[in-house]
Design a protein around this nucleic acid. Structure first.
Ligand SMILES: [Mn+2]
Ligand SMILES: [Mn+2]
Ligand SMILES: [Mn+2]
Ligand SMILES: [Mn+2]
Lengths: 222, 222
DNA sequence: CTATTTTTTTAAGCTTACTTAAATCTTAAA
DNA sequence: TTTAAGATTTAAGTAAGCTTAAAAAAATAG
């Protein structure tokens, strides 16, 4: 499986599990930095290989076979991220950048060695669930994005998902970490801004960032 | 730089430093598992990029620029081998197989992190020298192959170079390790067999293996 | 419902990295 | 020195993974 195909399948999988993102060829194309035409063409080819369900003008979906492959690539990605983070103390952004390359150069045996060495982790440093060797993965849908959280509730940050270095810098500068508790102060819905309180300070977060911060409610303030 | 190009340059470099191997397109081709025509063509293309010195029908050579690239790939390869060996206790064969893929998916920054983490190693687990970040590498020519060693001398094994699993199995089964001392009992030159004594036992080693075992003389028996 | 904008698809073409087959050159034997 | 075997090179062709430009369809606005 070429890395072009692996990235293509992986992106479809992720977009299927990240609502607010459609899986039409155009979205996949811009995520991968290729032209729409290239994505359409790849979709057609992969549907011939029975990895993708493709009907003209419809969103793309993975076949069970395609999903199995996507999950193994994601597994390798997240195992490397976990490994690099723990072993070398690399940043949340850096581990992603390196894992993006390593994931395609990793044998199943190597993945297994990482998995055992890391003591069978269930989540990577971004809070992303790590699929197991059979492709089973904890549901990615039991948390919500800060952008959609309710005012006056207290939440815990469970996941930080982005490939943008500035986003991770922003998180670091504002103590936004996995496990941090935040109180949702106000949603400025029209302007797509979310105001939260964290460790006494109040900050306003624009949609571009609040959409990448996943939280779980831990307390209801009536 | 594509992995095809990286492997091509790396192979030329290695063959230039491993006497008894010429660097004509055919040798490179069979090492890489591609056709002669493909190797000739690659040579021509890389000479246009000023990475290879290519004259029809002559052995290939690297330009300084080509050598720099080759050395960085080799550096990454050997750093990964060292890392995998120390961290996961993988076999001498296995580290080579995995490093063969990882070397092409490794940023300069990642190589630097490995290098520092490993405390600036000079040799990998096979005894191969690790080029530094400037491409400087200890001469690979101050040892000789067991096949060419003198009878009745005592040698120390300094290097085991192969990509054949059976070779490494043979070494393991016969206590042939980096640092082992062996006495050269007899060279059956016509039949290309080398008889050595190691830890009391005598074994006869065929050329296919004795050519991969590098030694240094440590004692002269008159 | 129609018109315009946007997106997707098709078409044609390019580069890389290969292949096989034929032509050419080198080398080593007679 | 000639010749034949063996390598190397050239030629022609393929598949993957892209591109841009056009045609076609879908989505959106009026
Ligand atoms: Mn990542
Ligand atoms: Mn992650
Ligand atoms: Mn190796
Ligand atoms: Mn090595």
């Amino acid at each position: 499986m070429s890395s072009s195909i692996e990235n293509f399948l992986k992106t479809i999988y992720c977009f299927c599990n990240l609502e607010a993102r459609d899986t039409k060829p155009g979205s996949i194309a811009s995520a991968l930095g290729i032209s729409n035409a290239a994505a359409t063409d790849m979709a057609r080819k992969l549907s011939e290989k029975n990895l993708v369900v493709y009907q003209k003008y419809r969103p793309l979906n993975l076949t069970p076979k395609g999903e199995r492959i996507a999950l193994q690539v994601i597994r390798k990605h997240r195992l490397w991220e976990t490994f690099l983070y723990r072993t070398f103390n690399m940043s949340l952004h850096e581990i992603h950048v390196e894992a993006e390359k390593l994931e395609h150069a990793t044998s199943d045996r190597m993945a297994d060695i990482l998995w055992n060495y890391l003591e069978k982790p269930n989540f990577d440093p971004h809070g992303d669930p790590i699929p197991n060797v059979f492709g089973f993965v904890d549901s990615e849908k039991d948390s919500l994005v800060l952008f959609k959280a309710e005012e006056s509730q207290i939440y815990k940050i469970v996941r930080l998902v982005s490939d943008d270095e500035e986003f991770y810098n922003f998180c670091q500068d504002n103590q936004l970490e996995i496990g941090s508790e935040v109180q949702l102060v106000k949603q400025y819905a029209n302007n797509k801004l979310t105001e939260i309180a964290i460790q006494g300070r109040q900050i306003i977060i624009p949609k571009e960032f609040s959409n990448n911060i996943y939280v779980k409610k831990i307390k209801t303030i009536i």
